[in-house]
Amino acid sequence: MQIFVKTLTGKTITLEVEPSDTIENVKAKIQDKEGIPPDQQRLIFAGKQLEDGRTLSDYNIQKESTSHLVLR
């Protein structure tokens, strides 16, 4: 499924993911596309910070959901 990640600069990154993917996996995909190390990434969805060990389905992130990327 596709999800979108919006950066603070207003850029939207499109990612191909599975509901069973962990947040860690998603951060690795963002690193592949954008070159941002996962330890600098914070992903926010529905006002919550997403934890590495959880999956997209844990957070009820469905296709075409948009989460926000904040850099630390």
Rank of each mutant, 00 (worst) to 15 (best):
K11I: 08
I3T: 01
N60C: 07
D32V: 13
M1L: 08
D52H: 06
K27F: 03
Q40T: 08
V26G: 00
E18H: 14
I44D: 06
F45W: 09
E34P: 01
L15I: 11
R72W: 15
E16W: 14
Q2C: 10
I61S: 01
P38I: 15
Q41W: 05
A28W: 11
K29W: 04
Q49V: 15
D52T: 05
E51P: 03
S65A: 09
Q62N: 14
K63H: 15
D58V: 03
I30V: 04
A46W: 08
Q49N: 12
Q41T: 05
I44K: 04
T22D: 03
S67A: 15
E18I: 11
R54W: 10
Q62D: 14
Q62K: 11
F4L: 10
E16C: 14
Q31V: 04
R54G: 05
L56M: 04
T7G: 06
Q49W: 14
P37A: 08
I23Q: 01
I44Y: 15
I13T: 02
N25M: 15
D21T: 11
F4N: 07
T66V: 12
I23R: 00
P37W: 05
L71F: 06
T55F: 06
N60W: 04
Q62V: 12
D52A: 07
T12R: 08
L56E: 01
S67Y: 13
Q62A: 10
V5H: 01
L69S: 02
G47Q: 04
L56T: 01
P19F: 06
L8R: 10
K33E: 07
I44F: 15
T7K: 04
K48L: 11
E24N: 07
H68G: 07
N25D: 12
D39E: 13
E24Q: 12
L50R: 00
K29Q: 08
M1K: 03
N60G: 15
Q40Y: 08
L56F: 02
G10Q: 04
F4E: 06
V70N: 05
Q2T: 14
I30D: 00
A46Q: 15
T9W: 15
F45Q: 04
E34I: 15
Y59S: 02
S67Q: 11
P38H: 10
T66L: 10
Y59F: 04
K63M: 11
K6M: 10
V17L: 05
E64T: 09
K33V: 12
E18N: 13
Q62E: 12
L71Y: 06
P37K: 07
L8P: 15
T22I: 04
G53N: 12
P37C: 08
S57V: 07
P37R: 08
N60Q: 08
H68N: 08
I44E: 12
P19N: 05
L50M: 12
L56S: 00
V17M: 04
V70K: 06
E64K: 08
L43C: 01
Y59T: 02
I44Q: 06
Q2N: 11
I30F: 02
E51I: 08
S65P: 11
H68P: 06
E34W: 15
D39M: 09
G10Y: 04
V26C: 03
